[in-house]
Design a protein around this nucleic acid. Structure first.
Lengths: 338, 338
DNA sequence: CTGTTAGCGCTTTCAG
DNA sequence: CTGAAAGCGCTAACAG
C-alpha cells in the first residue's frame, strides 16, 4: 500500500488538497501551469489514487461483476474474454463469480452485490434456479443487470441472446435434409428459456417434415454426470436407436461421443451428432461434430457495452429489450450463416 | 446502493455507532443482549456493510487479482475455477485480468495494483515478457504475489508449477519406446522457464536413447497464428518429415492436427502427436492425442491457499519456494502417473 | 483560478 | 460494557 496521497502531494507543492485533486482529474477550473506541476510530481512519485476513498465518496466502484454457471466451457470463457476486453478499455474492473449451476451459491453471490461493491452485473443464470426473487430484489435496489444467453425473462432489463429457435430449427432441418430423420433431443433442463426455445425449434423442424416426435428420444438430462450418462446409454443401446442426436449443450455432445466409444457404436455411419458448442476441436472429431456456434465473444462485448453505456448515463433503468445475435452452423469445413 | 448503514441502525436502536459496529463483528466486549438486538435488526433490514468504508479504514480489500495470459484455454480456466472456489470459501473476491500474452498490457494491469485495490496477486506471466521490473516493483511495494505455471524466477516468492522436465522426459520416452524416434519439438517461445524445462526433458530423452536431435525439427513458434502455421506447414510438408510431434502447448497441438487435415497427412499411421493439454476432447480425436495433463484445478487451489494463508498472517514475505505438482500422461484410455 | 470545509461509512483508540 | 471522537483518502459544494 503506497503511502503517498493527495495530502502528501499537496504539502510538497504548497497547494491545497482539492487543487491537487482537481488538477489530477484535469478539471477545467485549474490553470495549465498547476496541472503540469501537479502531474509532474504525481508521475515522479508514481502516485495512484486510493480506489476505496474515491469509491466511498463517489458511490461508484468502477467495478462490475460477471456471474456465470461454469467456466470450463468455451462459450462462457469467450464471453468473459469479450467482457474483460471492453471493461479494460473503459477502465472498469471485473469481478468473477462461478455458480456451478447451484441455486444456493447463486443466491449467496447475488446477496453480496447489494452494498455497492459493484456498479453492475452481467450474468447467465444457473440452470438450477427456478426462483428469481434474489435477482429481482437486486434489480429493485437499482443495481443494473444485463443477462446473456441463459437469461431471466422475469426481470425487465436488457438480455443478450442468440436466435435459439431459428438455429435449432435450421440445424435440425439440415440433418433431416441429409437423410437423418430419426433424431433424438438431449437437453439439460426445462427451466431455462434457451432450452425450451431450442426444443421448440427442433420440434418445429420435425413438424415441417411430418416426422412424429418419439417421446423416448426426448431426454432431459441433469447436471449430474452419472444420471445423464445412464440416460444416454439407455437411449443409445436401445434396439430402436435414433440415427442422429441433437444436444443443446456442449457437455452432452462430448458425453455422447464418449458413450459411443464405450459402447463401440460406429458413429460415422450410424450416428450424426449435432450440438450447440464453441469447441475448437469440433472439426477434428471423428466424425466431425456439427456445431451451432454462438458468437460468444461478441455476446460478451455487447453485454458489456450495454451495461457501460447505461452506467455512464447514471440511468439505472436499462431498457427492457432483447438483443438477438446470430449463430453459425459449422458442418465440417463449411459454414452456414443461420 | 443500500442506504441503511451503521448510523441508521444505531439511531433505531438508541445506541452508538461504535457499539453497533462491535456487536456486528461479534467482539468480546459487548453484551450478549445487545448483540442479539443488533443482529436481529440488521437481519431484518438486510444490512450489509459498505465494503469501501471498511477497506479504506482497514487498508485491506478482501479482494485478490488473477492475471492470466489467456482464458480460452482449459488449463487457465480450471486454475481460475480452483482459485475462485477457495476464494469464495475464504470470503474473498476475485478480479480477473487477461494479458493476451501482451507485455504492455501486462505492465498496465500490474500498475493498477499499487494502490491497495487488491490484497494479493496470483499470476501466470505473459510469454511476451522478457523484463520483469514491473513485477519486482510491485513485489517490493509489499504486494504479495504467487506465480503459477508460467512463473517468474526473478522474484522471491512462492511458485506453483508442475514437473515440466520429468513429464517431458517421460512422455518423449513413451513415444520412443513405442517406436517413434523421429520427434519434432514445437514450442511457443524461449523466454518462459516452463518452455525451456520442457525442451530440456525432450532433449534428455533423445540423449538417453542416443538419438541425435535434428535442428530442423526443433521449431520455435510465436503467438502469431499465421507465423506458426507457416512453420508447422514447412515442417510437415518436408520430405524429411518427423514421425511424431511434441508440442509444449495445447494451441500448437490443435494447429498441428488442423494442418495435417489440410495437407491430407494421414495422422494415424504416420504422425504421433503429444502435447501438454487439458483438453476434454483429447481421447475423441483421431488418433487420440496423447496428452500431458497438468492438475490445473489443484494448481489453482494451491496458489490460492498459499496466498490466503499469508494474507491471514499479515506476513507479506511469502517464502521463496517452489511447489511442484505432478502431471499425468493420458494415452487413449489409460493413464500413467508421471 | 484556489482554498476551506464537510462529509462518504466504517473501525479503532480512548474515556468513562 | 458503552459512547465520543478521530480519521482512512478522496470529492464536491461553497466561498473567496
Amino acid at each position: 500500500m503506497s503511502n503517498i496521497n493527495l495530502k502528501y502531494l499537496a504539502k510538497e507543492l504548497n497547494m491545497s488538497i482539492s487543487t491537487v485533486s482537481r488538477a489530477l482529474r484535469d478539471e477545467w477550473d485549474v490553470s495549465e501551469e498547476t496541472k503540469i506541476r501537479v502531474n509532474a510530481l504525481a508521475k515522479k512519485l508514481n502516485y495512484t489514487p486510493n480506489p476505496f476513498a474515491s469509491s466511498l465518496r463517489r458511490q461508484s466502484s468502477q467495478t462490475i461483476a460477471v456471474v456465470v454457471p461454469e467456466i470450463a466451457n468455451n462459450f462462457f470463457t469467450l464471453a468473459i474474454d469479450g467482457i474483460e476486453t471492453v471493461a479494460r478499455y473503459k477502465n472498469y474492473h471485473v469481478l468473477i463469480y462461478i455458480t456451478h449451476d447451484d441455486y444456493e451459491r447463486e443466491k449467496s453471490i447475488i446477496n453480496h452485490f447489494q452494498n455497492g461493491r459493484i456498479d453492475g452485473v452481467i450474468m447467465s443464470v444457473s440452470s438450477d434456479s427456478k426462483d428469481y426473487t434474489h435477482l429481482s430484489e437486486l434489480h429493485e435496489k437499482g443495481v443494473p443487470i444485463v443477462f446473456f444467453d441463459r437469461v431471466c425473462h422475469e426481470i425487465e432489463t436488457t438480455k443478450i441472446s442468440t436466435d435459439d429457435f431459428t438455429s435449432s430449427f435450421k440445424a435440425t432441418e439440415h440433418l433431416i435434409q441429409n437423410g437423418c430423420k430419426q433424431i433424438a433431443f438431449l437437453s439439460l433442463t426445462q427451466h431455462l428459456s434457451i432450452e425450451s426455445k431450442r426444443k421448440a425449434g427442433y420440434l418445429e423442424a420435425l413438424l415441417k417434415y411430418n416426422i412424429t416426435p418419439n417421446d423416448n428420444w426426448i431426454v432431459e438430462c441433469t447436471n449430474d454426470h452419472a444420471v445423464s450418462e445412464a440416460k444416454i446409454k439407455t437411449l443409445l443401446s436401445s434396439t430402436n436407436r435414433p440415427a442422429g442426436v441433437f444436444t443443446t449443450v456442449e457437455k452432452l455432445a462430448i458425453q455422447t461421443y464418449k458413450i459411443c466409444q464405450d459402447l463401440n457404436i460406429r458413429i460415422p455411419k450410424q450416428l450424426q451428432v449435432l450440438s450447440y458448442a464453441n469447441l475448437i476441436t469440433a472439426p477434428l472429431l471423428n466424425p466431425p461434430l456439427t456445431t451451432i456456434t454462438q458468437p460468444a465473444f461478441d455476446i460478451g462485448t455487447t453485454a458489456a457495452e450495454t451495461l457501460f453505456s447505461h452506467l455512464k448515463k447514471k440511468q439505472h433503468t436499462i431498457p427492457n429489450e432483447n438483443i438477438v445475435l446470430k449463430s453459425t452452423l459449422y458442418i465440417r469445413h463449411s459454414t452456414v450463416k443461420l
